[in-house]
Write a protein that binds this DNA or RNA. Structure first.
Lengths: 127, 127
DNA sequence: CCAGATCAACGAAGCCCTTCGTACCTCTGG
DNA sequence: CCAGAGGTACGAAGGGCTTCGTTGATCTGG
């Protein structure tokens, strides 16, 4: 049960993969450039290979153009990152993080209602 | 308005400083070892110097034993880290992060009530 | 069959973070 | 005055991340 902490660049690529679904390196590269500007093709390639070594992505090498896909659901990785931040910056208290997030100025006007509408107890939460 | 993103080690030291208040390197080093195990004194020294260069801590060098203190409130730094994570992993949506945090298994049994008790609107929040 | 396009692999460079050893300064007790 | 304790500064090593150029293999149109 390792940590599951993608780096910044790795996370950016994971976000591309989550949005795109499985894709070739070229497809991922193109989508990535659409968000980040010009990046060498081999940079995306290398990064995907590194992430594969770390178990963050899976790949299908049966065809010439390898197809990469996320190894974990977005929500699982997000949860891991949140837990990590909670441990490092909030002394393990998720409540403290939520409190801090709620006072974030970037929150949208209609968002408080959405937050409030969420279930309170974890046991009632499906996934 | 720069980013204000302490590294992992830097954040650990900041937590020591927030708990201790202003302190000499030796004091910080001792408190740090209490949590992290054996670390060289010069490691704490160097790290504090680096953080000073980054503007994360302030120091008083008028005495022989320099006294270091956090440059920012804990809540400010926490907010910056949360905002950073929101941007990198949640597409800028604080709501998504809160949702994910709420489904974190580590949350305590009585915590949902505490979360619910928090104010909904930012404008009503003092500090 | 060949030229050019497409592709994965590899290695290296550059950067930052972390850690520590060493050097040098300053103070203090005897 | 001197030895040693206690202090800061400095530089370097080691590791990880990110980026890319180069190489060599494979496919495809003509």
């Amino acid at each position: 049960m390792s940590a599951l902490r993608p780096t910044d660049a790795g996370l950016a690529l994971l976000r591309v993969l989550w949005a795109l679904g499985p894709g070739t390196i070229r497809e991922v590269h193109r989508a990535w450039e659409r968000e980040r500007g010009t990046v060498a093709y081999t940079t995306a390639l290398k990064l995907l290979q590194v992430m594969h070594d770390k178990g963050l992505v899976v790949r299908d090498t049966s065809r010439r153009s390898h197809v990469y896909a996320p190894a974990h659901d977005q929500q699982v990785v997000q949860g891991s990152l949140v837990t990590d931040l909670v441990n490092k910056a909030f002394g393990g208290s998720t409540v403290e993080l939520v409190l801090r997030a709620r006072s974030d100025r970037r929150i949208h006007a209609d968002d408080p209602a959405r937050i409030r509408a969420l279930p309170d107890r974890l046991e009632e939460d499906p996934r």
